[in-house]
């Protein structure tokens, strides 16, 4: 998963895959790839629920720079 997909994009793509699978629009040949991709996307979403990477110092710095 080299691409840095954010969770919202990952979730959107996941919903598309789910819809495709539910509608039976996926061939058996493509299924394996789609399932693998879905697993990656699910991981991105679940990781987001349990982690944040916000930086308090950065926010303070930006407030300062904006003229406080």
């Amino acid at each position: 998963m080299s691409e840095s997909l954010n969770y919202a994009e990952a979730f959107e793509e996941l919903q598309i895959i789910v819809a495709e699978i539910e509608k039976g629009e996926i061939t058996v040949d493509a299924l394996s790839e789609k399932v693998k991709r879905a697993a990656q996307l699910i991981k991105i979403c679940k990781t987001k629920l349990a982690s944040t990477d916000e930086d308090v110092n950065q926010i303070l710095k930006e407030l300062e720079e904006s003229g406080e």
């Binding site: 979730f11 996941l14 919903q15 895959i17 789910v18 699978i21 539910e22 996926i26 058996v28 299924l31 789609k34 399932v35 879905a38 697993a39 699910i42 979403c45 679940k46 629920l49």
Partner: peptide
Amino acid sequence: EFLLLVQKSARTVRESALRMA
């Protein structure tokens, strides 16, 4: 709710894949 949606999607993908197989 988001977690449930993700889990539901995961279940759908898994079940559909198994069913197709």
